[in-house]
Amino acid sequence: MQIPNVAEKWSGEVIVVTIGATKEEGGTRQKVVKVGGASCIPFMDFEGNPGHKPAIAMDVLDTPPEDLPPALLEPFKDVISNPALWAKKCVEEHGADLICVKLDGIHPDKGNKSAEEAVKVVRSILQAVGVPLIIWGCDDPQRDNEVMPKISQATKGERCLLAAATQDNYKNIAANCMADGHNLVTLAPVDVNIQKQVNILVSDIGFPLDRIVMFQTTGALGYGIEYAYSIQERERLAALSGDKFLAMPVLCNVGYESWRSKEAKAPDEEAPGWGRAAERGPLWETITAATLIQSGVDILRMYHPKAVAAIKKHIDALYANGN
């Protein structure tokens, strides 16, 4: 009996976004990272091209975080006060494809640092590592509108990925990214309709669709992962069905969200029956990442080296037959 071919035919594909610029391209990066390009459901490579492998961005904070769980602090305790060395360690020892500089320190409640200080941190990281950068504001719209334009100008030509434009606050950052040649994260918290709308709004002011990465906010395992998953899945199906305003690569904030959960961060003495904290936290982050990439994710922001190593291995295995 002939077995019918049930492979889906997709009419669309995920747009390829290039992050970073080499010397020849007007930047200083040793390599660029391309994300997107899938023309099939994740890892169903008999239906189409699975696209570029999901890239791993490791988070580096501009200000030493005060409340890191011990299991997370351990691998970075020697570099936690020096973002450049922290970034270098992520790239050289743990194989980060990208560094995500999180500018927590500019937040009014977390130090209210000046734009000049933020620029200094970003410059030091650019010098310390050769991978492309994601630069993330503090999620306070007023401070981000003050600081991100300066960051954008200071990194002109590096083709960074800057975050984030929202439905209510997109003109400032989009205009700066456009002028300075950066990519842009568009953010809509767990809402596919608003995500599409933000993408339309930024493209209305002339921002090119092939320089956008979408971010739905992320739920960790046990903390709403299914909401993030189903929205991302819907976005990916829309992209593959030809919706040009939802065809951009997707980013997930796995590290931060995973390590907020008590299951990840509770120390051994508080949760003696849950397994050792040193393993439990990285595992929580690993499972969150492994689950979400099935929905169609192109950039994973991650924290712990053990989780990064496990996910890199997992991605390589998933792509072993595809490419």
Binding site: V192, N193, K196, Q197, I200, G242, K244, L246
Partner: peptide, 18 residues
């Protein structure tokens, strides 16, 4: 098509670009 506030515009622009 997935809804957005600008769905009429989005559909027309997608058509023209396609």
């Amino acid at each position: 098509q997935i809804y957005s506030d600008s769905f009429l515009k989005a559909a027309r622009r997608a058509e023209i670009k396609a």
